[in-house]
């Protein structure tokens, strides 16, 4: 019975996991495995994807997968990669050649922007041959929707609730791709689950490059963002179409490719379909936050050029 239960067939990220319907992170996980193929070792921090995919004795993963703790998945991946470097150099038997293994991290924004940034920074600085992918759902979803360094201005979370004196998050979103690029990375990219082929192409391209790479993918969370599960892709697309989440490739510090946006939409169209922003349309001062977010989108359009 157990043999069948753990059979993965061709899928490397399998059904049966506990993620919510419409989960952007689960979709990301599936796309990651489709792009990397089986010759992959994935390091994952504590978080939604970790708990929804590996309740012992089950696992949704058809690739080698490791979770240690919340804030060290980049260093764990660096350690694995270094071990393979040693195995290949020393000709150790029983191990796949380092050049034939993809070393990948898949982590949420809390593990990336906040608690794991030391581990990530060190891994990038040291030049480990690791692709770090952040699924960005803009808050700590696993613990129940608390704000992270990725939460955008104005978003209501359980630690930045809208209230009589509050319009939700009052700190701007951290610019993580620039922080990654500042480490001298050859390849940094952003993506959106609304454009799966674009994301998979970027993952494949990144894996061709020796050294550290960083990809950040916008992955809506219906539960945390208070939107219907069916709207995940729509919202992910609107984030790009409004200019709030620019999708680009940055090579050696320069933007080399952007997803062009024709007739950029006003940010309200993106904001109004999510419960986390609804107070902005009702409360006094909400319009100022909306204006600020529009400015963010306008600056993105100008700076990144789409």
């Amino acid at each position: 019975m157990t043999e069948d239960r753990f059979k993965h067939d061709e899928d490397l990220f399998c059904s049966g996991h506990r993620a919510c319907p419409g989960c952007g992170a689960a979709l990301t996980s599936k796309l990651v495995t489709e792009a990397t193929g089986p010759q992959t070792i994935l390091s994952m921090p504590t978080g939604c994807m970790e708990v929804t995919t590996t309740p012992y004795p089950e696992s949704a993963w058809g690739i080698s997968w490791i979770h240690n703790i919340f804030e060290n998945s980049a260093a764990v991946a660096g350690g694995i990669e270094t071990a393979y470097k040693s195995f290949s150099k020393r000709g150790k038997e029983g191990y796949t050649d380092k050049d034939d293994v993809n070393f990948v991290v898949l982590a949420g924004d809390g593990a990336t922007f906040d608690i794991g940034i030391r581990s990530l920074s060190g891994m990038m600085e040291r030049g480990h041959d690791v692709l770090y992918i952040c699924y960005d759902n803009e808050a700590y979803m696993n613990t129940g929707i608390q704000r992270s360094g990725s939460t955008p201005m104005g978003a209501a979370t359980t630690t930045t609730p809208a209230g009589k004196q509050s319009l939700g998050e009052d700190i701007r979103k951290k610019d993580m791709p620039s922080i990654a690029a500042a480490h001298g990375l050859e390849y940094v990219a952003t993506a959106s689950v609304a454009y799966p082929e674009d994301f998979k192409r970027k993952v494949k391209k990144a894996l061709e490059i020796e050294g550290p790479k960083y990809i950040q993918i916008f992955a809506p969370c219906p539960r945390g963002w208070r939107h219907e599960s069916k709207n995940t892709i729509k919202i992910a697309r609107l984030a790009v179409e409004t200019g709030l989440y620019p999708v680009f490739e940055m090579e050696n510090g320069r933007i080399t490719n952007t997803m062009k946006v024709k007739d950029r939409k006003p940010v309200e169209e993106y904001l109004k379909v999510q419960g986390r922003f609804k107070h902005l349309f009702k409360k006094e001062g909400g319009d100022e936050i909306i204006d600020y977010l529009q400015e963010v989108a306008d600056v993105n359009a100008e700076k990144i050029g789409f």
Binding site: I66, N72, V76, G78, G79, K85, Y95
Partner: peptide
């Protein structure tokens, strides 16, 4: 000595790197 010497950023990541390498099968 031909070991891979990893100049990590903290003891936290010394332990974490060792853990990754050990899980891969290495002596650390």
């Amino acid at each position: 000595l031909t070991s891979e010497y990893v100049k990590v950023d903290s003891e936290f990541n010394a332990a974490s790197t060792a853990i990754g390498a050990s899980a891969a099968g290495a002596r650390v």
